[in-house]
Every structure is written in C-alpha cells, then in structure tokens.
C-alpha cells in the first residue's frame, strides 16, 4: 500500500509524517506525534472527545484523514496554554470543576474555546447547543456550562482591558 507524505502545523510547529491514506488525523496526533491529550472516545464521530482545531474550526479528529489535513494549521489541547499559563477556558473548567472523570474534557475545552472565538457572549442556550457534539457521561453538563460562561466573561474582560 502506498504511503503519503503529509506536512502540517501542529501547535505552531511544522511537522511531517509518512502515513497510509487511511490514517486518521487523531492517529497521526496520538501515535506519530505522541500528543495523547486528544482522546478517542467513541471512534464513531459522536462523542467529541477527539475535538481539535483545524484552521481555526473545531472538528472531530477521528473523522478526518491525516491526508485531508495536509497543509492545515492544527491546534490540540496541548497547544492551548501559552507560556505555562492556562487558557481561560482551561482555568474556568478547573475553577468550576467542569468535569468528573476528565475523559471528555480535552474535547469540551477545545470545542468551548472555538465557540468563544465565534461568539464571545453566548447565552446558556447557545452554549448547550454548541456543545451538542461533545458528550459527557459524568457531569450532567451543569458545571461545564458554568465554566464556559465564566471563561466567556474572563475573555471579554481581557479583550476590553486590551483596548
């Protein structure tokens, strides 16, 4: 079987790998690049634990081929904190304990971070609707939604202070 050479940017670093055409992006991230923060939950594109950003949009990395991400700018949970400082969404999940077992958390955080770029002031309904693609079997979502609301407030204040 043929292999393909793919080159992409992951968390700001240029990486290349030779992969089979059927290699999924999540396999490239976890098995080639050892970025195991991105989880495989259902492997059927339902649970969202594998959510990463591809060119600034949240996608399920178990349902995109590595080959399709050739040339793309990919961000994973490992690339969210900057210079050792947690992203506001990560900090808010910690503050509000937006998790129990934590397995879905990387996907929840990546999905929420994408939401707050596109909609800095979402209503509770908009948060819950956006997170339909992320399934948590522990929390009942209550603290997750609180965390996203809190992160939205933090990010808005930071943006205001910068103006």
């Amino acid at each position: 079987m043929t292999t393909l050479s793919v080159s992409l940017t992951v968390n700001g670093k240029k990486v290349s790998a030779d992969v089979e055409p059927r290699t999924l992006l999540v396999q490239l991230l976890r098995e080639n690049l050892h970025l195991t923060g991105t989880h495989v939950g259902c492997d059927t594109s339902q649970c969202g634990a594998c959510t990463v950003h591809v060119n600034g949009d949240s996608v399920k990395s178990c349902t995109i081929l590595a080959a399709q991400a050739d040339g793309a700018d990919v961000r994973t949970i490992e690339g969210l904190a900057q210079a050792g400082v947690l992203h506001a969404v990560q900090e808010a999940f910690r503050e509000h304990h937006g998790l129990q077992c934590g397995f879905c958390t990387p996907g929840m955080v990546m999905s929420s971070a994408d939401l707050l770029v596109k909609n800095p002031n979402p209503s509770e309904h908009e948060i819950r609707t956006w997170l339909e693609g992320n399934i948590c079997r522990c929390t009942g979502y209550h603290n997750i939604v609180k965390a996203v609301q809190h992160a939205a407030q933090t990010l808005r204040q930071t943006a205001q202070a910068a103006e």
């Binding site: 959510t51 996608v59 995109i64 939401l115 339909e132 693609g133």
Partner: peptide, 9 residues
C-alpha cells in the same frame, strides 16, 4: 445539521 464539528466539515 448535526453538531458544530460536523458543520465545520
């Protein structure tokens, strides 16, 4: 359609 991640692809 679907969810946010599906709508992005």
């Amino acid at each position: 359609i679907g969810d946010a991640q599906v709508r992005h692809r």
